[in-house]
Amino acid sequence: MLEVDGLTVSYGPVRALRGVSFAARPSTITAVLGANGAGKTTLLRAMTGLVRPQEGSVRFDDHELTGLPVEEVVRLGVAHVPEGRGVIDQLTVEENLRLGALWRKDKSDRKRALAETYDLFPPLAERRRRLGAALSGGERQMLAIGRALVSRPRVLLLDEPSLGLAPLVTAQLMALLAELTLLASLTVILVEQNARSALSVATWAVVINLGQVVVSDTAAAVGTDTGLRHHYLGF
């Protein structure tokens, strides 16, 4: 169980988040939706410790994540794929992937996880010696998600994974996420502007506006609430 409780973040005089609370249940996808500038990215960054919240806490099972350095949060099994994906251009595909699991002690399992990721994303296997800079947008997205998965995370935070992807690729990605939550008992927090495709795979949905939670309900309930959709989700 991942619990966010009363999270408040300010950048100088600007409040980006005001007392955001929600819980993500294990092996489900929770969509975090809202317009540009609603605070979605800040929420993810505060969850992994890339920005320090002024108030509130983030808890994962028995661990208090608030205040921990980013690298230690990651080592507890929380993987974060940032907006813009964060593929390291100067490293090869294989080096990017290896990097994802480097902190884990079990070397033979690291190899296994790498092989599984290549099975999951065959285009990456063909390009393992290419530099990250030489990949297409879709390949970069595969690499960023693959790199998160080789660490065998229990929680996956995804920031706008559909950004810049073709609709077909987005649909494949969403299907894969749904599969992973079942197979790898992964908890996914999916931040999306593309609300329609996020709601198609999510079980739960949290809608944020101007740094505050507007509604937190099942994805089905949010997706069928016409007023909510028109107001905040743009479809």
Binding site: E71, Q90, L99, A148
Partner: peptide, 11 residues
């Protein structure tokens, strides 16, 4: 090359 991203993968 990428200090913040490196921390995000546990380095």
């Amino acid at each position: 090359f990428a200090p913040e991203m490196s921390r995000l993968v546990g380095v």
